[in-house]
Design a protein around this nucleic acid. Sequence first.
DNA 1: GCAAATATTTGAATCGTTTCATTGTTACGA
DNA 2: TCGTAACAATGAAACGATTCAAATATTTGC
Lengths: 337, 337
Amino acid sequence: MNRSASIKDVANHASVAVGTVSNVLNYPDRVSQRTKDRVLKAIDELGFVRNDAARQLRAGHSRTIGLIVLDVGNPFFTAVVRAAEDAAALHGSAVLLGDSGHDAAREANYIDLFQEQRVQGLLISPVGDVTERLDLLRERGVPTVLVDRLADEAKFSSVAVDDDAGGYLAARHLLDTGRRRLAFVGGPTSIRQVADRLQGARRAVKEDADATLEVLESEGQTVLAGRSVGNSLVERGREGLPDGIFCANDLLALGVMQSLTMTHTFRIPEDVALIGYDDIDFAVSAVVPLSSIRQPTEALGRTAIQLLAEEVESRNPTHRSVVFTPELVVRQSTKAN
Amino acid sequence: MNRSASIKDVANHASVAVGTVSNVLNYPDRVSQRTKDRVLKAIDELGFVRNDAARQLRAGHSRTIGLIVLDVGNPFFTAVVRAAEDAAALHGSAVLLGDSGHDAAREANYIDLFQEQRVQGLLISPVGDVTERLDLLRERGVPTVLVDRLADEAKFSSVAVDDDAGGYLAARHLLDTGRRRLAFVGGPTSIRQVADRLQGARRAVKEDADATLEVLESEGQTVLAGRSVGNSLVERGREGLPDGIFCANDLLALGVMQSLTMTHTFRIPEDVALIGYDDIDFAVSAVVPLSSIRQPTEALGRTAIQLLAEEVESRNPTHRSVVFTPELVVRQSTKAN
DNA sequence: GCAAATATTTGAATCGTTTCATTGTTACGA
DNA sequence: TCGTAACAATGAAACGATTCAAATATTTGC
C-alpha cells in the first residue's frame, strides 16, 4: 500500500459521495445511522487518516499554535510548555514547539517556519529585544503573545511574573521570621530578573527601620557561583555574618548552603536563614529543604493560551498584559528560631 | 490586509504566470535574472509567505518529522531533542516535538496528530511496550525509529544505550581504583535500565575473585530515596560499610552523598567511593564532585535522525539497531586512595 | 393517498502550490 | 536565410478535504 487512502477512496468503497464522508467526519448528526456505519467501516478497512494539509488549505489556517521558548531544558519553560499544551488541547489545537536556545538565528528560523505553517498564533519568549521580524509578523496580523516578558500593550499581549513582588516576598518573609541583617546574593545585576528581585527586597527592608540589606554580587547563577559566595561568608566568621540570605535563584542558594553546612560552623536555619527563587525540584531534596519563591508556571502557560485565543477571536487588535504574583514556599531553611 | 497573498497575487503583481513564481521559489536557475528580480520584488511588496499546506498537499508529504519523548524535562531527552533538531535542519526538515509525559493517551494523541500531518517519519520513545497503534503506523509505511529502546529488528530501527556496559564500566572503575566491597543502589529492579546496570556491575565483580557486590534496593530513583539508603548505611557503622558504591542514577548518588557527608563520620572518597549514572548537570556541582556514567545523547539524537533518513529513502524496509556505549566520567568522588 | 415539511445525500467548486507538456524566444552554425 | 538547439515562460491539471446549493428520500399531518 503505497499512497494512503483519500476521502474519495473511502467514498467509493462505501458507495457514497465524498461530501457524505466529510459529513460523517465533521457533522455526524447530518448523516443517517446506516450510512454512517457503512462509511466508518470503510474508513477502518482502508486505514484512512485525514490529510491535514488538504483540510488546512481549504480552511485557510491550521489548528496548531507555535510556541518558541528560550530553552526547553529550563524547568520553568518546561512547565510552561506543558501547561500550554494542555490548555491548547482543550481548545482543540496542538502546539508546535520550537527551542531557540537563546539564539536569534534559530528563533528567526522558527518564526518563518511557523508562518509557512499558517499557525493560528504564536507564543514566544523572545531572544533579547522584540525584533523586526516579530513586528512584521504582528503587522501581517498573526496573533502573538509574549511570554515571560512585558510588552508595550499597544503592540502585543503578554504574560509575565512580577519579580519585584517575588523579591519583596522573600525579604519580607526573612524579616517576619525575625531576621535583621539580610544579604542578597545574585548577579550580574544587568539581568532584568536579578535587578527586579533585588529591588523588591530593598523595598521590604526599607519598611523595617532596624533592618539592613547587603548585596553580594555573584558571578553568574550557578551552584558553583553560590558556593564561592558562601565560602567568602564563611571566612568572615561568625560576627560579620548576615542572619538571613536571599539568593536570586535556587542554584545559588544550594551553593551557599553547601559552603555553610560543609564547615559545620553555621547551622541553617538557626544561625542563618536561606531562601532561593524558582522552587526547582532540587529545592525540596536539599540537605536542608530550601524555602523558595515559586512562579505560577501553569497559570502562566494557561493564560498565555487564553490571551492568544482572545486575539485570534477578536478582530480588532486590543492587547492585554497579565502579570502574575509569585508565591512563597516555606521549608526548613527559613524556620523561625 | 485580511487574507495573506498567494502565489497568484504575486504572479499578477509581477505580470508573470504562476508557474514562473513557483520556479523562482524552487528552481531559481530556470528563470532569467530579469523576471527573477521582478518576482522577488513583488514577493517583497506583497509580503508573500509560502503556504506550506498547499505545498504539502501537492507533494504528498510534509518536510517535518515527529519526535515524541517521554519527558521534555528530563535532561537526557532535552539533549536528544536538541541534537535531533540540529541534524534534521541539515536535512532541510523541521522537528515537531511532542511530550507524552509517560502517558499512553497523550502518546496516542500525538501519533494521530503526526499522522494527519503526514510527517516524513517518526522518532519515538514509547511509553511502555510498543503499542498496537505503533505497529499499525509501521504497517501503513510511516518510517519509525525507536529511541532509547531496543527493538525487534524485523519491525523497527532503533537507537539505544548499552546499560549493561554502563554498569560494567562503573563497577570496573571502582574495582580498578582498589575498592573491593562494592554496593549497588537502585530500584525497583523491574525497571529495565536498573536491571541492566546491575547486571553489568555483577559481570565486572565476577572478574575479581576477591571482590563482592551487595545490592541495596531503593524505593525509586530520587534524592530522597538515596538519602534513606544512605542513612541505613550510616547506622551500620564503619565495619559493615562498603568501600565503593554504584548508584543507578545521579539523584540516588546525590542522596547517598548527603547522608554520608552530613554525619562527617565517613569521607568521600577516602572511606567510600561513590559513582552515579547519567552525568546530570548537578553531578559536577555536588559537595564532592560526583563521578558518573555519561550517555552519548548528541550521538543518539543525530543517529536517530540518520536512521530515519535511511528508512525514508530506501523503499524496502530493512531496519538497523544502533547501540551506543556510555562513557566514564571521573571526578573527585572516586579518586584513588 | 397527497402535499408539505424535514432529513439525507450529492457532486461541483474551491483553497494555493507544484508539475510538466507546450509554446515562445534567442543564438548559432551551416 | 534557415534549421536546430538551448533556454524561458506559460497555464491547465492535480493533490485531498470542505462547503453548499441542489436533488432526492423520507416522514408527517390531514
